[in-house]
Amino acid sequence: MTGGLVYLLYVLFAVGGIALYLAMPRTQGAHAKAGLVIGGGAVAGLLALCAQVYMAPHGSNIFYYIFAGVALLAAGRVVTHPNPTYSAVYFALVVLSVAVLLVMQRAEFLAVALVIIYAGAILVTYAFVIMLAQQSGGGSSADQRAREPMLAIIASFVVMGTIAGRVSDLRELPNSPVEVQATADVMDVPLADTPVKDAGNTLSVGRTMFNQYVVVVQLAGLLLLVAMVGAIAVSRKRIPADEHGPPPPPPGEIGRTVPPF
């Protein structure tokens, strides 16, 4: 991205940050509508900038702009919605939109993995916890206001702006499995003898993961296993019968009685 446009990018990020600050949930004096309007404008500007600078590889594809916009706006709502359940639903929308963007980049495997793991498992667990933790009609307003919105927004938008300003230079990313395969070939990784042209997305990802990054995969698996053992160890606690309440009554005539709970 050429010099002047990068500053435009930074300005858009700043506007987005202000919009998000305005839209943050507060118990009084909220400007959520104004924030959303400004934020929508910032997202539209960002997309227009993308359209201007990167006509390829998806400059003409209307779906890219639709889903990118949906993802950004929904991400904004994740942090600004006062109700955590709605935040979870918006997060699901973000995940699905990003999955669509990945499909458009021909990364189907990554897209489906994202949906299965994030939308299917992790997010449902979040929803589970939220539902149990916060029943409607509760007295506390702790969920309805943001804590330290200013600092959080400044920190996150500075990080995002820095990354975006840097990434906007990297235009020559390989964006198809075939090209990824080609780079892998250059790096002299032993590959099976099937022709690269027919290699599907899943096959390519699998080969890359289990040839180049096999140690990383093993380490990640080990880490998850350790986390699981730890979680079980923390949650497992034997409660002796005495701590529960009074000892159960002696068995009746027929055998034993089960008191109604």
């Binding site: 495997f109 489906v112 299965i116 939308a119 299917g120 498992a121 449902v124 539902m131 997305n201």
Partner: peptide
Amino acid sequence: NPDIGLLYILGVGSMGVYGVVLGGW
């Protein structure tokens, strides 16, 4: 006929619980 047919069904199936969860909540 995507490259991920089987995973697609798994993914869609795992989304199926959303209706129940949202409706119940």
